[in-house]
Design a protein around this nucleic acid. Sequence first.
DNA 1: CCGTATTTTGTAAGTGCTTACATAACTTCA
DNA 2: TGAAGTTATGTAAGCACTTACAAAATACGG
Lengths: 331, 331
Amino acid sequence: MNIYDIAKQAGVSIATVSRVLNGSPNVSPKTKQKILDIMEKEDYTPNIFARGLGLNSIKMIGVLCTDVADIYYAKAVSIIENALRQNGFDALLCCTGDALDDKKKYLDLLLAKRVDAIILIGSPFKEKFDNSHIEQVSQKVPVFIINGFLPFDNTYCIIGDEKEAMHQNVLSLIAKGHTEILYLYDAETYSGSQKIDGYTLAYTDSHLTVRPELVVKVPKNLLASVQKVKELLLKMPSISAVTASEDLLAVGAMKAITELGYTIPEDICVIGFNNSLLSECTSPTLTSVDNRVDILCTTAVNLLIDVFSGKSVANKITISSKLIERESFKL
Amino acid sequence: MNIYDIAKQAGVSIATVSRVLNGSPNVSPKTKQKILDIMEKEDYTPNIFARGLGLNSIKMIGVLCTDVADIYYAKAVSIIENALRQNGFDALLCCTGDALDDKKKYLDLLLAKRVDAIILIGSPFKEKFDNSHIEQVSQKVPVFIINGFLPFDNTYCIIGDEKEAMHQNVLSLIAKGHTEILYLYDAETYSGSQKIDGYTLAYTDSHLTVRPELVVKVPKNLLASVQKVKELLLKMPSISAVTASEDLLAVGAMKAITELGYTIPEDICVIGFNNSLLSECTSPTLTSVDNRVDILCTTAVNLLIDVFSGKSVANKITISSKLIERESFKL
DNA sequence: CCGTATTTTGTAAGTGCTTACATAACTTCA
DNA sequence: TGAAGTTATGTAAGCACTTACAAAATACGG
């Protein structure tokens, strides 16, 4: 069943059928209805490949993320997929893992699939390498980067203001008298460096110096973080607050703290990041920064729609993050 | 840059170029290499749409799930996507939400996208409706169902043995003297009914009767489950164990239990399901059934590959689940 | 009622690939 | 060395659409 069969049944040419397929206004209401009826009756679906050949697009967006199994990216992907679908686009999912070489490979793969655009989430921008390749990619299709910044022509960056969020967190902690604030982070991403900047800024704002041994990299893994934090607390008993780049690490810290016999938040208070499901599951519940991944993602898709409809849009949009206060730290 | 340009540069016909594109053995090594070199040099990528037109496939699999934001589905999707990609397939993600009408719509949408097969995860099979439509779909492309069972020709079901897992859990609880065992469930899925069957079976095995007020449906939502379980515990103080269809509900139960002043597992023990990240984050940690979603998913993809390579494979495969013992209940 | 403007429809040339079939170029061995 | 067999290459007909351009049909105004 193809466009010819439909045309024959309707007694028109294939051009007319194609026109109703593409919503052209230049078809008389009568013939349009007749054709639609026949399509309905015959359960006809236009061949997406032929369509793609003609239009050079099948309205498909490549969504590249490190790992959908991660609760945070999962949420992002979910929101993006929904938003795209509401606008008639499909999401071709591509999880790259951490290897940077793969990232390049996967970008090419998406390009080979002739996606109309690429949305990147949580890409570890290890400077030099990736970036030039993304620039190349953006010469072919627009690239939308969530929580990353690259100043290229056809790339659009939607960024959570995590630097400021972390800045405020640490300022609040310092205001409450904490000076030895442990910062746990997992990945060296754009947003990772933003957070460290915020942390540092709060210290310098307060005329304190950052102790480098308080800024600690930990694998994104519960047991590892428990282990590490225990070590640190034993070595530096003066630590009175913990902030983390990720709720999971904060949860690890909480476990370590409790297991060493301290109480939260009385002895040591904890602030997480991402406001994930985990933050409600612990006891005490975890105060955490919501970086508004929902808004970041819908903004990205809206931007995408605008770009395709020819509007000129900003290359960089910043969205304010927001502290969600729970039991592990009160303002 | 298309196949003609490459052919011209190489001084051969497009057929030869196409042959190297498709790995045909009937090309002399010399010309093959020459063509590959030119492709490399020109950064040529075959047009996927034209290819699809000719081959009637672009090796893309529709992955349909209720919601990737859910930690459990996220893991499944992640594994599936990876396994598919390793076999040269892409994953077209489609999250349906809970509405059944949408499910039908989305199946048609995937079909219209000319996917080569459909993998279904966590579909709420509300009998009559969905099923007939899936049967229709399976007449066009093979359908792989994870944790669901439909006895159609071109459908392949990969099922976790959750009935048995729940059966064993409840038997263990009964063996320890628990008779009032609360069962919390969220959705009426295939796996949901399996679990209830297992629960019931353990009671009848033990010559006890199930009290219907102990089998309770709760929205998949932390606060709702905390609230509900508190109510139930106050109404029925004899409850000494809780099992759940989902870790999140179990976590809710744990919160309720603790907030009412009981201790886990001494006063009330708790068993979750899915062995998610949550089960390690709570304190005490949550004993939970691992239904081996990793194996379920890779098995599904392997089956898919086998089906496409013409092997005849089983229509129903069952994978044993496995209890992961933690602090909230010890065997 | 006819000429012009407008709307509707059709013709045919892409779009870039696959592949059956035909042909040409090599092997092999008597 | 040449016939038969094998391997490599080319020709051309799909595949199912889109769309520029041409042509036909209709509407409108005087």
